[in-house]
Simulated assay, not measured.
Amino acid sequence: MTVVSRIAAFADHDRGGNPAGVALADHLPDAATMQAIARDIGYSETVFAAPIGDRWITRYYSPEAEVAFCGHATIALGAELGARFGAGTYALSLSGGNITVTARAVDGDWEAELTSPPTWSRPLDSALLSEVLDLFSLLPDDLDSALPPTLAHAGVQHAVVLLRDRARLATMDYDLAAGRDLMAAHDLTTISLLHRTSDTEFAARNAFAIGGVLEDPATGAAAAALAGALVDLDWPALRGGGTFTIRQGEDMGAPSRLTVTTSDTPGAPVRVAGRTRPL
């Protein structure tokens, strides 16, 4: 039997967050059934998990297709596991490797922290950057050189672009079909547009056309990929390891907060934490 809960991850207390379906079962359904359930729920992702030994076999589905890794659904899963089985760290076996999620009770709510897959980053190819700029009607002068355009990976792949002007970020818009085609052609899970509000805080908007939605209100996988890229670039505020905050979803009326903790080791997994709220 598959039991489905609906949980918003990375909530700002009792507001916002990114909705995820969480489906727990004794055994995972077949792929067609998981896809049908995810399509029926309609959230950007639904996570499926079943216990095997001391681990949980875990898979993620958008309404359109299976996804290798989803941060906000992992946070939602952590909260559900904590509520059902108690606070602690749970080992997850994904299609592409193993991670953990830790659940803890905070002020009557559940908070979870995932440890991501290993990270890597490299400069964004100039031809791809040109396509991204065209998609969002951006110009090279709109970019903040503090973080060069980057291809970043933490379980899945993201294009990361830092904008100089917060107001320019607020006006983000693009053609959904064109965005889906671009992302499919370059194996991108999101295109992450950011604005640096300080050296330890970013405002973010994440286009998720490949999943059939214009924008995600909170994106844990992109947060982990950004963290890996900042470590690779020797970001001054994170030398020796450190923590930074991403504020996402504010421009779409779903305020979300992600807390990201890094080591100082390039390529190492990072930790992404946030509160949850039931839906």
Results as ranks from 00 to 15, higher is better:
residue 257 R to G: 05
residue 177 A to E: 15
residue 224 A to E: 02
residue 120 W to H: 12
residue 192 S to P: 01
residue 243 T to G: 06
residue 257 R to L: 14
residue 241 G to A: 13
residue 121 S to Y: 07
residue 15 R to N: 07
residue 88 G to A: 09
residue 179 G to A: 10
residue 22 V to M: 08
residue 101 V to C: 08
residue 163 L to Q: 01
residue 254 A to P: 02
residue 186 H to P: 02
residue 144 D to Y: 04
residue 261 T to R: 12
residue 204 A to Y: 02
residue 147 L to E: 09
residue 115 T to A: 07
residue 165 D to S: 03
residue 144 D to N: 05
residue 232 D to T: 15
residue 252 M to W: 00
residue 257 R to C: 12
residue 183 M to W: 02
residue 151 L to I: 05
residue 111 E to V: 13
residue 196 R to C: 01
residue 57 I to G: 02
residue 251 D to T: 07
residue 270 V to N: 06
residue 209 A to H: 10
residue 19 P to Y: 04
residue 85 F to I: 09
residue 111 E to A: 14
residue 262 T to Q: 14
residue 158 H to Q: 09
residue 119 T to E: 15
residue 108 G to A: 09
residue 150 T to Q: 05
residue 213 V to F: 04
residue 60 Y to K: 00
residue 80 E to K: 08
residue 141 D to L: 09
residue 11 A to V: 00
residue 256 S to E: 05
residue 247 R to H: 15
residue 249 G to R: 02
residue 190 T to S: 10
residue 76 A to G: 13
residue 268 A to K: 04
residue 176 L to I: 13
residue 213 V to I: 13
residue 70 C to R: 02
residue 96 G to P: 01
residue 150 T to N: 03
residue 172 M to D: 03
residue 187 D to R: 12
residue 76 A to I: 08
residue 171 T to F: 01
residue 185 A to N: 09
residue 31 A to G: 08
residue 46 T to S: 14
residue 96 G to D: 08
residue 87 A to Q: 14
residue 83 A to Y: 10
residue 92 L to V: 06
residue 126 S to F: 03
residue 214 L to F: 07
residue 118 P to S: 14
residue 245 T to M: 10
residue 221 A to I: 04
residue 172 M to H: 03
residue 76 A to Y: 06
residue 247 R to D: 12
residue 116 S to F: 01
residue 137 S to N: 09
residue 93 S to R: 13
residue 217 P to Q: 08
residue 207 A to R: 06
residue 118 P to M: 12
residue 170 A to L: 05
residue 132 V to D: 05
residue 97 G to E: 08
residue 54 D to A: 14
residue 271 R to G: 06
residue 32 A to G: 04
residue 257 R to I: 14
residue 124 L to Y: 01
residue 51 P to R: 15
residue 88 G to L: 11
residue 250 E to Y: 04
residue 232 D to N: 15
residue 217 P to H: 07
residue 268 A to C: 11
residue 271 R to M: 09
residue 105 A to Y: 04
residue 77 L to D: 12
residue 89 T to V: 15
residue 29 P to F: 10
residue 219 T to W: 05
residue 91 A to P: 07
residue 180 R to E: 10
residue 77 L to A: 14
residue 271 R to A: 11
residue 253 G to N: 04
residue 233 L to E: 13
residue 197 T to F: 03
residue 7 I to P: 00
residue 135 L to C: 01
residue 85 F to K: 12
residue 28 L to W: 06
residue 142 D to I: 02
residue 124 L to R: 02
residue 154 A to Q: 10
residue 68 A to G: 10
residue 19 P to H: 07
residue 243 T to P: 04
residue 269 P to M: 01
residue 160 V to F: 03
residue 196 R to S: 01
residue 65 A to E: 14
residue 83 A to Q: 15
residue 9 A to K: 03
residue 49 A to I: 12
residue 132 V to L: 10
residue 169 L to V: 02
residue 55 R to V: 12
residue 98 N to C: 10
residue 139 L to P: 00
residue 95 S to Y: 02
residue 201 E to V: 14
residue 135 L to W: 00
residue 135 L to P: 01
residue 42 G to C: 07
residue 149 P to Y: 00
residue 157 Q to M: 10
residue 29 P to W: 09
residue 7 I to L: 08
residue 42 G to I: 03
residue 253 G to A: 03
residue 164 R to T: 11
residue 90 Y to C: 11
